[in-house]
Amino acid sequence: MSEVKKFMFVNRKAPYGTIYALESLEVVLITAAFDQDVSLMFLDDGVYQLKKGQQTKGIETKNFSPAYRALEDYDVEKLYVEKESMQARGLTEEDLLVSVTVLSRAEMGALMDEQDVVLSY
């Protein structure tokens, strides 16, 4: 399949409370395997997906956060975090387990407009 489209994944949900974050990540990996142009946007509670130090033993659930670090191996390097969402949650870039580009709401909106396919979870 030679056609390349710009896929954006908009993550607005926190991990563990619901399965969306985990299953969304599965779509991201497959999309990258199809050699598409993939970017990930973390907005609102979605920012919590990237928090360092997740310890899931006590809830008997798999800690899937290391997978965000593996995205690089799939050539998924465009990770965007929305600034106000991060600040509103008392977080800074230091708290995140991968390196990201921090953007304002307006910059995020402009980026959305450039996409061919937007999948939101």
Partner: peptide, 8 residues
């Protein structure tokens, strides 16, 4: 519209 986004 060229694209559509569902704000879930």
């Amino acid at each position: 519209n060229k694209t559509c986004q569902s704000w879930l």
